[in-house]
Design a protein around this nucleic acid. Sequence first.
DNA 1: CCAAAACTCTAAAGCAGGTTTAGAGTTTTT
DNA 2: AAAAACTCTAAACCTGCTTTAGAGTTTTGG
Lengths: 279, 279
Amino acid sequence: MKNELLSIGEMAKINNISVSTLRLYDEIGLIKPCYTDEESRYRYYNIRQNARLDMIQYMKALGMELKEIKEVLESGDTKLIESILIRRKKQVKEQMAGLNLQLAAISRTIESLERYRKSPTIGTITIEYIPHRKIYSLPTTLNFYEYGIEVYENELKKLKNSLIKHNLPQIYYCNAGSTMKKESFLEGKLESDEIFVLVDDDFPGTDNVKRIESGMYVCIYLDNFDDEPEYAKRLLEYCEENNYKVAGDYICEVLTEFSVFDDEKRGMFLRLQVPVSFR
Amino acid sequence: MKNELLSIGEMAKINNISVSTLRLYDEIGLIKPCYTDEESRYRYYNIRQNARLDMIQYMKALGMELKEIKEVLESGDTKLIESILIRRKKQVKEQMAGLNLQLAAISRTIESLERYRKSPTIGTITIEYIPHRKIYSLPTTLNFYEYGIEVYENELKKLKNSLIKHNLPQIYYCNAGSTMKKESFLEGKLESDEIFVLVDDDFPGTDNVKRIESGMYVCIYLDNFDDEPEYAKRLLEYCEENNYKVAGDYICEVLTEFSVFDDEKRGMFLRLQVPVSFR
DNA sequence: CCAAAACTCTAAAGCAGGTTTAGAGTTTTT
DNA sequence: AAAAACTCTAAACCTGCTTTAGAGTTTTGG
């Protein structure tokens, strides 16, 4: 262990860093070799420089930017490190919160795709128990059944922008749906009432968040937005034929959406549903 | 709400995206305007294209890369989305684990800096209770007290590489320290025994992980690695003068390290300590 | 001592996922 | 018709590196 100089390769190896990274750090002035041969331009390091490199790597591991690290090393101000770290701490926490949401969304999406694969044939009518749900909703300003897809898209945009404006995670913008008043449904009129997205149970409560109660629902499955009127009619007929008493508002729920096949149409898998009561 | 075309600016606004991003997406073929004026090269979008853009933004929110999104949109294969999402899920979990470690390390560092500011003057001797600690340690192969800082740096590197080789988070590489056998200390000889880093209580247990018991320690503070021999001697003298019985191995602990002022020397704040027993 | 192998040099380009800018042309508004 | 607002392309910039090309330097082995 002599007091000898280390070539850039040796320095890189003992510090688990790449040669090019060391060259980069030299260039930006983070850590300069203690000696550079003027002729060959070869860089030579001293083993004592490890201290500084360790510090750099540690700060990097804390998530600091190279620029910040440089600043800290140049100023030698521990207050500065502290303020950067406090900021960084907040950042990391936010990032973790975001990742948690992302994870949940990924899981939901995977489930949704699985559900799609196992889904009943189009037109199937079922009677199922649906657990309670929480939705973020907005009343529709125009009846999109009357005006067509452009208006529907417009209402969707409003919903999305409302989420964004309230600083709510946009990641919920998926699994949208719409509701229609029980009365409209029973009269066979199609009048949109609200448009919504499903949110987690622990979604922060605001004015627009409400709960849809659990219960038995009569449902019909379809895969095309355009078919909704026809299938809603069938759903109503089925309820009437079987004497099911409609107990609440009608819901059109998007179970899976994959606008992947077509450039312009929403490829969907939908479940129309009405809660029913058994006397 | 006519069936009219949207300029790129309008499209951007209603989708909370920037104009340049839309141009980028056009360029890489993610979403192309439904009509481009051949003369002016102006891009025009249809509101129905929102469906695709929503899908893109949703996939992006799930953390998918643009390349992956493009692939999925082009293949129209839901299986592909699923496999990407499953991979991504694992990735996110790893990322969160990393962020958790990072957060802990940031907090430790902030504490350490705070401690530095409140630290007693150099040479102060204290008798304090120190809670139990967990360390990842390696026996030293050479007595660095004898050979000097180059050997110390070398032992440190070995410790670091051992952490890396065992695939353990490098972020612990901070707050290093060394131990010396009680016997060496009592004889006034400086013989390094082990070199270590402090780890969390829930650090995965391996061969190199051990626990240092809690207890009363006699401590002396200093700020320079070179002064250790002298201060260790003072510590020993103090114990003898006051009839404290040394009850275990000597520890040299780095409380704060900030190699920020000097290019080559480790700027440190150290606490030398020996456990003592009161008959 | 010389050739080959191993290493190092600089400069520039590439990655992701955009953003920014410059300079020119086009629509829309007044 | 002029002014304001918008849009176009092409290229540069951002971070934190990595990769490549092509040339030069040290070390190793025989």
